[in-house]
Amino acid sequence: MKKSVFLGVVAATMTVAGAASAQATLEAVKARGELICGSNTGLTGFGAPDASGNWTGFDVDLCRALAAAIFGDATKVKFVPTTGETRFTALQSGEVDLLVRNSTWTATRDSELALDFVAVNYYDGQGFMVKKDLGVSSAKELDGATVCIQTGTTTELNLADFFKQNNISYQPVTVADDSEAQRQYLAGACDAYTTDASGLAASRATMPDAENHVILPEIISKEPLGPVVRHGDNNWGDVVRWTYYALLIAEEKGITKANVAEVATSTADEEVKRLLGVEGAGDLPTKFGLSNDAFKNAIAAVGNYGEIFAANIGEGTSINLARGLNALWTQGGLQYAPPFR
């Protein structure tokens, strides 16, 4: 009897968590009047609340664009902070509608975790940060070092592989999130801190002595980061995917936050007309279950991809990342949107 009570309690816990329906996320979001976006617990530049509690960042702006596309109002979005450990459970259980928190697209997550990565909004790779006075210039010199690593991430597995391939040893210190990793690293409890290179740059930007830390040249993995939705609701996946592509197309066509209204009235480009939902250019955006001016609203709310990048993490911000792989395909990068027709 004792054992069956135990099993019952377990099953009860699991069932409550799994009550969300897989279908019709868009309808649920519309009915709720608010988009719930799984965000970082705080990674400057990508997703972090500022001093007055407003969420800002590269990933956050994608959520705002999506809210603008659905409701015509970029403020109708709630951000739920998730850690590396809790993020996928939060998404699977329906606690959040989508995750935009620098999560790496992998085959396991696509298949076994039953998730769908709908786009890659940042092409990244795993790097190492060390203190300058350690005198290390390459990750291969880290033999015997203590390395801080966030748990529940792909970087944890890449790290083990990298040291094994190079036949060197290390001592892992497993921490829960970025802020704890920073604390341990700054206190000298670990020699090196490893995560995505963009995350390292973001962490370094918040350190009081940023100039004393150096990010090593080795990039030891591919880390395509992007928005994630639950597997099984294809329409919702399409909404997220095409909102993101709309921002890319906008950059490609020179549509910005400032000129989107003007372009909508003056443009002669048929693809732009279709994207912005100009009168007489068809009703393609409504096929996603959105209003005809959804993507126009999204661009008007946060700007195009290039503007979002420049405002949050680009050169000139404290994080100071170059476009690199994330430049448009027309400029030698990997960011490429399929035609909007």
């Binding site: 019952g8 069932t15 799994g18 897989a22 039953a114």
Partner: peptide, 16 residues
């Protein structure tokens, strides 16, 4: 108990 177990199984199945 049967309802709980069935519910768990169904929900797991819908999530693949």
């Amino acid at each position: 108990l049967a309802w709980l177990l069935n519910n768990t199984a169904v929900n797991l199945a819908t999530r693949g």
